[in-house]
Amino acid sequence: MKDQGAPPEASVQVSSKSVEDRRLRLVNRTMQLYRNEAHALIETLHAVQESFGYLEEDVLKYVARTLRVPLSRVYAVATFYHSFSLKPPGEHTCVICMGTACYIGGSGAILDALREGEGIVSGETTSDGKVSLLVARCLGSCGLAPAGVFDGEVTGKLDSEHVLERIGRWRGHEH
């Protein structure tokens, strides 16, 4: 158990080594903050998600080895929590809130419109890789229902037209 070996950073395959190092830095810092203890797993996965945009398999292996958590356990935790994604996100991200207030306010209809208008289903990325559509349980912006987040920017009082237009702009076509 003492022999940790060299951190297998090299096993993470990304085109540029320097980019890679920068992305792993946050991950390493998080793990060090918790002295590489196993219970830092979720915090570390948050860091991976933040710097890589998703949980890349090689990074998961790296984290598992560093924190000495079984591989299957890492995968289990990564798939149990909805905040983590194993797929790379699209260029843009649209989150539609499906909290109760937003649902009552019509966010279900917005999702229907997106499916019909743009062919996007929640949890998926468009085939052109431009837009990922996510559904949030509650953004806590119930006062602004229905609410959504467009590339990190919370927007309230949405309607289908508005959302379709924004997505259309991202994908380079008008509605």
């Binding site: 079984p70 591989l71 299957s72 356990r73 890492v74 995968y75 289990a76 798939t79 149990f80």
Partner: peptide, 17 residues
């Protein structure tokens, strides 16, 4: 072994699924 996902979609997995 461990278990991935949650709820009705849970499934036992080996290593990284």
């Amino acid at each position: 072994w461990d278990i991935m996902g949650r709820g009705i979609t849970s499934r036992v997995i080996t290593d990284l699924n």
